[in-house]
Design a protein around this nucleic acid. Structure first.
Lengths: 304, 304
DNA sequence: CAAGCACATGAGCTGATGTCATGATAAGTC
DNA sequence: GACTTATCATGACATCAGCTCATGTGCTTG
C-alpha cells in the first residue's frame, strides 16, 4: 500500500535533486530512502526515477505520483490545520524579533503565507525595542526570536531551522578574491565590517578569529547589509555574512566571496520559542513553513 | 504524521459502524484499530469519535478527517491505476462465468464501475457455454469464475470475496416460519427447491443435510431465484439461498427465512482466477471493486 | 444481576523500516 | 587514463512502530 510517507519522500527528492540531499531534508539516511523507494517500486512493478542523472529524472510513473503528491499533501495539510483549529479556540499571538539582520528575505514570504492561513493569530514584529530579545521572550513580551546563537535560558527552547555557511565578502579586485578559502591570519591586516552588536554574538569572532587568536586591524560597523556591501565593494573593508545574504550581490558580480577556513564556517539558525508554545499548532505550522520557505528561497543552506 | 492507513481505517469505521466490524474489514484485530486510532488521537490532541454509541459517532475533528479521506483516497486510487496502466500496455481480457445464480445483484454495479475505469479491458460474460467453468478457466477460455466451492486445480487461485449465511426460505404460514433456526431432521418431510446443478455443489447438502444423513422428501429445481420464491411463497417447497439473495423478498414480506443449524450455515464466495492474472493491476482492481460493491450493496455479509 | 458485547489496555512479539559499513558506478580532475 | 569524489545500491544488523493476544472495564439487555 502506498503511504503518505512515500509521497513526501518523492517531493523531497524532486526538490533536492538527489537521494543524498532528499534524505537530509526528511531527516533519514540516504540508505533508508534508497530502500524505501526500491520497496515502493517493487510493489508498483515499475521504476519511479532514473538515478544516473543530476538532478534525478522521474519516469512517467514517478511523475504521476508526484502529481498525486501535489494534489494530496496540501489537502492533508489543510485538514491537519482545520483539526488543530477545532481544538484550541484561544486566539494566538506571534510577536517576534529578528537578531539576524538579513533574515527578512525568507521571513517575509513566510509571514505572508502564515497570515493567510492563520488569520486569527496576531502576528507582528514590534519595532523600536531596546531590550535584549531573548530575555524578552522568556518574560512573554515576545513569542519568537530568530537567532544564530542560542543561550541556555529557563523555559526557552531553540528549534533549529537550517544551517548556513558564513562567507567573507571582499571587493572584486581584493588580493584574497580568488582564494577558495582563507585562514584566520589573513584577516590580521584587514578592516572587518560587522553589524553593530557585541562581538560575542558574531560568528566570525567566536568561531573563526578568536580560536586562532587573531584580531583584524580595524573593526567598523554598519546597520544594513546593503551599506556593508557598498563599503566592501569600494575596498574599504571585508565582511562576513551568511552565504544566502550574499547571493544577490554575488550574482550581480558586485563583490566576491571566499570561504572561512578549509571546512567553511557553518552556523545554525534557530527559532527561539517558549516551551509552552512548542505544541501550539500554529507555531508548529509557522516553523514548518519557515523552514520550507527558506529552502525554497535561499540557496546553499542545509537542514539542521 | 498522519498516514493513509489512518484514513482508510476511519472510512472503514464509518462504513462498519463499530470498531469490531471495521477491524474485520481492514483485516486487523479490534485491538490494533483501537491502538491505532488512540495513537492518532493523541498526536492530534483530540478525540475523533465517540465510542459509546451505535453506530459510532464522529466528532467534528473526526468528520474533518473523513472528508479528507473522501477527497484523498479516490485520488490515490486513480494514481495507482494510472501507474498500473503505464506498466503493461497489453490490453486485458476479463471473461467470466458466474456459478452463483444470484450474484448479478452486486456483479452488475461492479462491471459498470470497471468498464468506466478500464475501458481497454474487454469484459464479458459469455453465454451459452455448456462446459464446466473451472476447467475452462484453467484452459484460458475464461478469466474469472465466481464460485462458492473451490476445487483444487493446477494454476487456479481462489480469492475469497466475502462470507455469507445460507438461509432457508419458507412460506409465511409455514410451520417452521417462526423458528430462529432449524435442525437437518426438520427437512426430512419437506420439498427442497434448488438450482439445477449437481448436489455436490449445493451447500445445503454438503454442509447441512449430508453430515446429518438426512434427505428431503422431494427435490425439485428452478432456474431463477424469482421462480423459487414463487414456489416457496405458494407453499410448494422450501429453498436454501444466501441471505443477501433473499433480502428483497423478506423486505416485501413475501417469504420468511430461518437459519440452518444453531450457528448458521456460512459459506465463502470466491473469485477463481489463474495464478498469472493475480498480479494484473486491473484484476486486482476488479477484485477490490467487487468486494467493495458487495459490502455496499449486500447486507449481512462478512469479510472472508 | 448475570450475560453478552464493545472498547481499552498492557505485555510481548515481529516484521517493516531504519542505520551502518561497504561496494559499484559514474563524473570530474590533473 | 589513473586518481578523486561524488551518488546510489546492497547486505547485515538494529530498532521501533504497529500488530496480536490475553485480559480488564463499562454499558446494555433480558
Amino acid at each position: 500500500m502506498i503511504e503518505l510517507r512515500h509521497l513526501r519522500t518523492l517531493v523531497a527528492l524532486r526538490d533536492a535533486g538527489s537521494l543524498v540531499e532528499a534524505a537530509e531534508r526528511v531527516h533519514l539516511t540516504q540508505s533508508a530512502l534508497s530502500h524505501q523507494i526500491k520497496d515502493l517500486e517493487e510493489r508498483l512493478g515499475t521504476a519511479l526515477f532514473v538515478r544516473k542523472s543530476r538532478p534525478v529524472e522521474f519516469t512517467r510513473a514517478g511523475q504521476r505520483l508526484l502529481t498525486l503528491a501535489e494534489q494530496v499533501l496540501p489537502l492533508v495539510r489543510m485538514a491537519e490545520r482545520d483539526v488543530a483549529r477545532l481544538i484550541g479556540h484561544e486566539p494566538g499571538r506571534l510577536h517576534m524579533a529578528i537578531e539576524c539582520h538579513s533574515c527578512f528575505q525568507w521571513l517575509m514570504p513566510t509571514i505572508d503565507y502564515f497570515r493567510d492561513h492563520w488569520p486569527e493569530v496576531e502576528i507582528d514584529i514590534p519595532g523600536g525595542h531596546h531590550f535584549d530579545p531573548l530575555p524578552a521572550l522568556a518574560r512573554e513580551q515576545l513569542d519568537l526570536v530568530i537567532t544564530a546563537d542560542p543561550q541556555p535560558l529557563a523555559g526557552v527552547y531553540y528549534e533549529p531551522l537550517f544551517r548556513y555557511e558564513g562567507l567573507l565578502a571582499v571587493a572584486r579586485q581584493h588580493r584574497l578574491a580568488d582564494h577558495a578559502f582563507i585562514e584566520p591570519a589573513e584577516l590580521a591586516e584587514e578592516t572587518l565590517i560587522t553589524y553593530p552588536v557585541e562581538r560575542a554574538r558574531l560568528d566570525v569572532f567566536t568561531q573563526f578569529l578568536d580560536p586562532a587568536g587573531v584580531r583584524p586591524r580595524e573593526i567598523r560597523t554598519a546597520e544594513l547589509t546593503i551599506m556593508m556591501m557598498q563599503l566592501v565593494a569600494s575596498g574599504r573593508g571585508v565582511c562576513a555574512l551568511p552565504n544566502w545574504a550574499l547571493t544577490e550581490y554575488l550574482e550581480r558580480d558586485y563583490v566576491k566571496a571566499v570561504g572561512l577556513g578549509e571546512t567553511g564556517m557553518w552556523s545554525t539558525l534557530y527559532a527561539a520559542i517558549r516551551d509552552e508554545s512548542r505544541e501550539q499548532p500554529w507555531m508548529e505550522d509557522f516553523l514548518r513553513t519557515a523552514r520550507e520557505t527558506s529552502f525554497a528561497v535561499l540557496e546553499g543552506i542545509k537542514p539542521a
